[in-house]
Design a protein around this nucleic acid. Structure first.
Lengths: 295, 295
DNA sequence: GAAAAGCTGTATCAGAAATTTCATCACGTG
DNA sequence: CACGTGATGAAATTTCTGATACAGCTTTTC
């Protein structure tokens, strides 16, 4: 089950940025604050954000029209229309030759920590997806979509945040959802009402935390169904878990990456939301309404 | 602003929408001679020919401007700008999902939901990395590596979990790190000691939360440096933020994906840990020792 | 072959968009 | 603390674009 991590196969290199975007990134330092706003908007929606009108662009960037003009002037264009023309031409060139995207992949030079890190994380995600048994995933979706079940999320030092993230979404989609703190003193008394109808979803990666393990073992002993999201080395919780979804976590860092776990979490949320849509939609609308009134 | 809209737009399946080009081809017979010239020009340089001005388009097609206008009217658009808007949106949709149109990816058979979701998330991560200015990222790393600064993390309903995740890591790497709950009643009193030496790192994506915005505005007013991790549409916090790191969040789900934000968070943790390694290492060892004793 | 119907282009207009001007503001400096 | 510099946006200004009315031309039809 454990496949080697040496998977730096092909993977279409992060598409080479067209010249203007690149130049903007390089010059980012020298921009004034509002120019940075403009630059961010443009880069985040490159290049479509620039195809709108000046007014639209300005409003979306949260700056004034003149600032937008100064921005494009500083980029070396004679005016906004000229700037737009450049964007269109760049876009056309890029779209017409899909090969151009491969481009000069000399990014090893200026693409620093972030790009390398992202590459590793993306590799983790791909490896994670490939090694999840579809049936296992579907089984978990079905379990979490059962309205008669009560769902409890929990996790360790770092993964606790993921459990919270999951809980905050599922809480809206369905009822009987809660979060259990890791420390035993905080859950001991709550365990008495956990039984066959309950599902415990635990997040736990290496440096497995004993208290999370203890929680799951107790829950399992009382008949609860345990679902485990962990790393490929499998937390000891796997022994009592009905379903296990492993995610790759190794990254060029002193820390492990939880991106794979987040991916699984979000995919579960998406799938369950879809499956329960008839009942989830009214719930989501109601939540939205309450938020509106509350302020 | 407009955060009251529920996203139940049933994200129509990735079935190719009837492209405008296709419709034009079908209707070609019914066009008048000059309309045909317009149609041919548009199809031959689709869709870029349509992004120019009416005058330019007319001249390139060898017809008059009014004929161009009549052409777009006949296509069912209310005016030339509306026509252009349609072209841009079509183009954007097509460009953003280069994978979707790559034909029937055979894996749709196997693990549909999860694989499709992963594909979208990976696309988000790539887009996110490409649109972050290295200088901006480095600036944030430097800021968070300054031992004299005090770092406060905060976030909204769902992103709060990411803030916690960040906090739980940075807390170990360095000192003066904490998490601030979103609700104003919980932070009002804490704000008195936030000033020039403080850095507020806020996570906020669409359906931006007013209380998080308020927190950041207050902090900024008192001289704190605000760092914002948000979506490409930029939370209103961007107005008061010194640094903004946008992440792509759109996924085939009723919910947005925070994977890009997590990627940035983890990359920041990795970079800061590396930069502060001399002081971080002893801290991490000390934490490990305490955990061991405690059990 | 003439009248009707349908296209098309010229000239013009209204309005929107880009640009410039200028007063104000924030911030660092002497 | 006054001063100067640079950034910024509101408003005035200019430019240009999309839209329209109308007249000429072509094609159709009887």
């Amino acid at each position: 089950m454990n496949q080697s991590d040496m998977r730096d196969e092909h993977r279409p290199p992060l598409t080479a940025p067209p010249s203007l975007a690149e130049r903007i990134r390089l010059d980012m330092d020298s921009f004034t604050p509002s120019e940075k706003r403009a630059a961010h908007l443009l880069l985040s929606h490159y290049p479509f954000a620039g195809l709108d009108t000046v007014a639209e662009f300005a409003s979306r960037a949260g700056i004034s029209a003149p600032s937008v003009l100064r921005f494009v002037t500083r980029l070396g264009f004679g005016g906004f229309p000229e700037f737009q023309k450049h964007l269109r031409e760049e876009l056309e060139a890029q779209l017409l030759s899909p090969l151009a995207k491969a481009g000069p992949s000399d990014k090893s030079q200026n693409a620093p920590a972030l790009a390398a890190f992202a590459e590793a994380v993306i590799g983790n995600l791909q490896a994670t997806v490939e090694n999840i048994a579809p049936a296992e995933f579907e089984a978990v979706v079905a379990l979490l979509s059962d309205p008669r079940r009560h769902i409890h999320f929990t996790g360790g030092r770092f993964t606790g945040a993921l459990a919270r993230y999951a809980e905050s979404h599922f809480r809206i989609v369905r009822s009987h959802v809660d979060f259990i703190e890791g420390q035993p003193v905080l859950w001991r008394d709550r365990m008495i009402e956990i039984g066959r109808k309950d599902v415990v979803v635990a997040f736990d990666i290496r440096r497995y935390q004993e208290d999370v393990t203890a929680l799951c073992e107790t829950a399992a002993r009382q008949g609860a169904t345990v679902v485990l999201l962990t790393d490929p080395w499998l937390s000891p919780i796997a022994r009592v878990a009905r379903h296990v979804l492993p995610a790759h976590i190794v990254a060029p860092s002193n820390w492990d990456s939880s991106a794979g776990l987040l991916l699984l979490t979000e995919a579960l949320v998406a799938a369950v939301t879809k499956r329960l849509w008839d009942s989830a939609k009214p719930r989501m609308e109601a939540v939205e309404r309450l938020r509106g009134e509350q302020r």
